[in-house]
Amino acid sequence: MIDICDLYKSFNGQEVLRGVSLRIERGELLALIGMSGYGKSVLLKHIIGLMKPDQGQVFIDQQDICQLKGKGLEDMRTRFGFLFQGGALFDSLTVFENVAFPLREKTAMKEAEIEARVLFELEQVGMAGAENKNPAELSGGMKKRVALARALVMDPEIMLFDEPTTGLDPVTTSLIQRFIRQCHERLGFTGMIVTHEIPKIFEIVDRVALLNQGRIAEVGTPDQIRKSTRPEVAQFISGATEGPIEWQ
């Protein structure tokens, strides 16, 4: 489904991705872990074509998204849902308008259908009753939940989550993770979650990949990652300050 081949990206001469290769199968939910500032979000943005690589390809069903432009890229992106780190809700729109936004823009649904759909999604994320609030009135966790509802409202084939639970309390974190798993089972999307929630995330994903020094250091099931003998994996999971992972 998603095939990342030898991806390189640098910013102002600083190499962030140095030959990332990773394959995600259809319907799989994969967690991408790694140190902060090591390019996890950058990799996510390459998958949806928000960034262009210096070198390498990202194939979505054998189509290289890096080569797509105009209508082709637009069509490809309609298959995606993306949950941004800060939610990226539109300040000028209410919660309801934010969630309704992709439906109004990209479908021919009638207003009554849109309303029913938006209310359903908001209820799913526990935000029923907040339709008329502005994003500025919401807490960080509430913003993430509304953003999640917006990302899922189009029933995407591919879902990308950029740190969906960072900065949230443990209860909300568990609720959001459980909700992501439920949505994955319900919608069957192919998903990638950038996260630091270790080991909690191991409970909901099919596989885990560790990004280190601009490359994928290890990929495996949560059990394989837990038992991995690779020093960088063991260090990252245990949170030890001494080891092969360099702090940048």
């Binding site: 943005k45 890229l73 992106r77 995606f80 992709p102 990209k106």
Partner: peptide, 10 residues
């Protein structure tokens, strides 16, 4: 990232 969000929504 609101502009990125627009692009991500095609």
């Amino acid at each position: 990232e609101q502009i990125d969000a627009l692009e991500a929504m095609a």
